[in-house]
Structure formats: C-alpha cells, structure tokens
Design a binder for these strands. Structure first.
Lengths: 168, 168
DNA sequence: GTTTTATGTCAGTGTTGTTGACTTTCCAAG
DNA sequence: CTTGGAAAGTCAACAACACTGACATAAAAC
C-alpha cells in the first residue's frame, strides 16, 4: 500500500480507484459470508435477519427500550414493531412496562430467546473467530479501525457505547 | 490483542466472546455507513441496492453474461431478471444476444448507465477513501485480509478473479 | 390543562427475494 | 437428421420486510 510522510508528519495514502473498488467488493462479499450462517439457522425458525438484529441488541443491553432499539437499528417503529411482535408471540422476547416511566417498554430475552440468540451468536462468532485466526492479530486491529472509520458518526456513537478496549 | 506463539511457530489468538461480538457489531454498523451514500443517490432514480450491485459488476466486467452475474450476486435468475429489466427499460444497461451462443445475453452499460455507475461508485469510494485515510495504511491491509477470510470460499473465488495486487 | 413523548396499530406501497411454468437455443446420443 | 435433455433467459404470482402516513393511547412534562 503506497504511503508517504508529509514534512508535517501526516501519513498520506495514494489510493487508486481500483484499490478502492476492491475494498468495496470485499465489503460486499464479506458481508454475505458474515450473515450466511445465522441466516441458515433463522430459516428453521421462520425468522429473518431483522429478528436476529433485535435479539442481538436486546441480549447486549437487557431491559433496553423500544426507542433505544429504534435508534440503534435505524428502522421505522412500524418495521421494528412487526419484528418485536413476532418475537414476543414466539415467546422469545418479553416486554415489560417501565416502572419509572410507564410509557416505556423494557425488552428482555426469555429463556428460549436467549437460547436462540446464543445459537445465532455462536455461529457468527465462529465465522469471525476463524477469519481473525487466518488474518492474524495486526490484521484484526486494522479491520476494526477501518470499520469504525466507515461508520456514520451517529452510528459510531452507538458502537462506542459498549466499547471493549480489552487488552489492546 | 492477545496473541502468543506455539512451539511450532503458529500464531494463536485468544479472543473473548466480547471481542468477537464487537467485531460483529462493527460489521453491522460499518455496512450501514458503507451503503448509505449510494442508497441516497439510488432513491432519486427510484432504484434499489440490487440495481447498484448489477451496475457495479457490469461496469467491472462489460459483456458479462446473465449467468455469470447470477453466480456473483447469489440471487435467483428471476430476481436478477427483474432488476436487469428495469435497468434496460431505463436505458442504463444494454443486453446483446451472444454471437457464439445465442442463448446468452451479454450486458453492457449505456452512456447514462456508466454515468450513474460513476456517480454511485464515486460516492462509495469517497467514503472508503476517507475511512482508509483515517485508519492508515497498515489498518487497510488488515481490513482487506480479514474481510477476505470472512468470505465463503466460492465468493472468495469471485473476489480474486479481479484481484488487484497493485503495489502491495 | 395543554403539549410532548413513547409506544402501538392500520392501511398502503415498493424493493427484492422466492417458486413454477414457459420459450428459445444448443448439443449430443441414437 | 432427429429427438430429447440441458442451459439461458423470461413472465407471472407470491412472500418477506422495508417504507410512509394517519391515527390511538397513555403518561410524562411544562
């Protein structure tokens, strides 16, 4: 990868359109791989990717409100509501009226909801783990750095709310 | 990122579920950013992401056949056909009957098709370029490495058919 | 007490995926 | 040369899931 230092010390990258296009295609193909395993599992449950996303973020932040989930997922409330309705009807998610603010609904995974979330998450983590292993530790760091730079600022905020700075 | 060397020299990564989950969320949020700019442009043309993908790969391999596009995009031929029909009706793509094999249709961008593809591609490349700049050259290398490792082998094959090994 | 906020619902529309049935073309076995 | 199967593409119908807009309910905020 071509790069130079300016007198000021800033790193410049000279990127051809071709190199950028390859990056774009890499995102496209990788995202397909990224969702392939959960998609197969979801099919058995007659659920879609939208349900997976909801399960993921409810699992991540138990007791989260509908509104919070909306801003994370970036869909309309009508769209999210359909998804949550299915999950609640299927006994995977429980919706509890807020105590402080009774307008709010706090969302929790039920036992079977947590089990499905685990199944989905494990499959996806294994794919990720395998990719990380193949690529090596420095690559992983770079991967995360570029992904974060690619997010919209507002989404980056959501991402960093649960930032893991582990042992890096 | 924790890593050690085995006596055999293989690099091992010890990745917590938490770290892997963050990687998963990074993919999710980054992909949203990745598609945001083209999506806005496509809206003006009353087209969707599927049209963008078709335009991209036709632009990349002019004269490609429908069948080839199918295996790259991983959708049914009926689904792709609807997308191509729209693009052809809108005068963005031209479909020429094959000379060797008259069953095949070779696909080309028209002048206005190429113009739209440029517009979409430029927007997406700028996002990618900005992210690359922020992240720095080593990060870009790692990013590409992990993404490639995340692909299904069959998709990786498509990805590598146009491999750019530039000045790396 | 009026306004705003949080949530949910109904109706309608659009994109994109699916399957099934069909035509045209090619190729190869008889 | 014909015939039958496979391949490429098309048309039609349907399903999933996103969207907008309008409206309802309840509770919090001012």
């Amino acid at each position: 990868m071509a790069d130079t230092q300016t007198p000021g010390g800033q790193t410049l990258l000279f990127l051809t359109d071709e190199q950028l296009r390859k990056g774009i295609e890499a995102m496209f193909f990788a995202y397909r791989g990224f969702t392939a395993d959960p998609d197969r599992i979801l099919e058995e449950y007659r659920l879609g990717r939208a349900h997976h996303r909801a399960l993921h973020f409810i699992s991540r932040a138990p007791g989260t409100t509908v509104n919070n989930l909306l801003s994370i997922l970036g869909v309309t409330k009508q769209s999210l509501n359909r998804v949550l309705r299915t999950l609640i009807d299927d006994g995977l998610v429980e919706s509890r009226v807020g105590t402080r603010d009774k307008r709010e609904r706090h969302l929790f995974l039920t036992e079977s909801g947590a089990a499905l979330e685990q199944e989905l998450s494990t499959a996806q983590r294994e794919r990720m783990r395998q990719a990380y292993r193949e690529a090596g530790p420095e690559a992983v760091q770079g991967f995360r750095t570029v992904l974060e730079a690619m997010m919209d600022p507002e989404l980056r905020h959501h991402f960093n709310r649960t930032r893991d700075d582990g042992d890096e």
